[in-house]
């Protein structure tokens, strides 16, 4: 589904540069449930942002279903992301002034989908996530778990083949986290490719493959045990 070749990302820091991703090579196949792990500052979220096409300023090759994303213009990338990617955030990022129903409708409102069809899709999603009773509530009237449920519902309403989740259970207690992870598992079983960033080994256990990042380098991949660590990292 996705092939990353020699992806690099850095930020200017004073006179020099801080590297957050170094020569990352990664292949994500359809239907996988990948967990990205690593200590803070390893580049997990940066990699997720590259995958989500929220970040433009990387170097290397990014292929999405044989399309060369690295050759695309910003507008084409945004279009590709809109069609294929759903995002789930650690702090949910629900809009405070919109109801549950309106929050879920948000991604559809940016597509050319007739209102009637949108309403039907929203109704289906509310039903599927069993939050029909909450549809007119505002985010601050929901528990953290419920808010994340809405966040996931919003991420998958347009049926994206790829779901990216950045610490989806980071703000939840273990009971709520379990429910969310079960939900991810279900979605994965229905065919959605999932990439999650987490610190939790338990959550990683729900996935089919784990990759490890350290200081921007891809240092481990359960699908590729032969992955050799770069010299700088092994030396340290």
């Amino acid at each position: 589904m996705i092939q990353l070749k020699n992806i690099e990302r850095s930020y200017k820091a004073g006179a020099g540069q801080t590297w957050v991703l170094r020569r990352v090579n990664l292949e994500i196949r359809e239907g996988e449930f990948i967990t990205i792990m690593g200590p803070s500052g390893a580049g997990k979220s940066s990699l997720l942002n590259v995958l989500a096409l929220l970040d433009d300023a990387w170097q290397g090759e990014y292929w999405f279903r044989d399309e060369a994303v690295h050759e695309m213009k910003r507008k084409q990338r945004a279009e590709l992301a809109k069609r294929n990617i759903g995002m789930v955030f650690q702090s949910y990022h629900l809009l405070d002034d919109l109801t549950v129903q309106e929050n879920i409708d948000l991604p559809l409102s940016y597509k050319d989908i007739p209102r009637r069809e949108r309403q039907s899709l929203v109704a289906d999603t509310l039903d599927r996530f069993q939050i029909v009773a909450k549809k007119d509530l505002y985010p601050n009237q929901l528990s953290g778990g419920q808010q994340q449920l809405v966040g996931i519902a919003r991420a998958v309403i347009h049926k994206p083949p790829l779901l990216l989740a950045d610490e989806p259970t980071g703000n939840l207690h273990s009971g709520q986290a379990k429910e969310i992870m079960e939900l991810f598992r279900g979605l994965n079983q229905q065919g959605t490719t999932i990439v999650q960033v987490t610190h939790s080994e338990t959550n990683a256990g729900y996935g089919s493959r784990t990759i490890q990042l350290r200081d921007g380098w891809l240092v481990g991949d359960t699908a590729n045990p032969a992955l050799t660590q770069p010299a700088e990292v092994s030396a340290s």
Partner: peptide, 16 residues
């Protein structure tokens, strides 16, 4: 800023 970021992450175009 955050809200606009979320909207853009969810597919809002610049014009939106």
């Amino acid at each position: 800023t955050r809200e606009i970021g979320v909207r853009m992450a969810l597919g809002a175009r610049r014009i939106d």
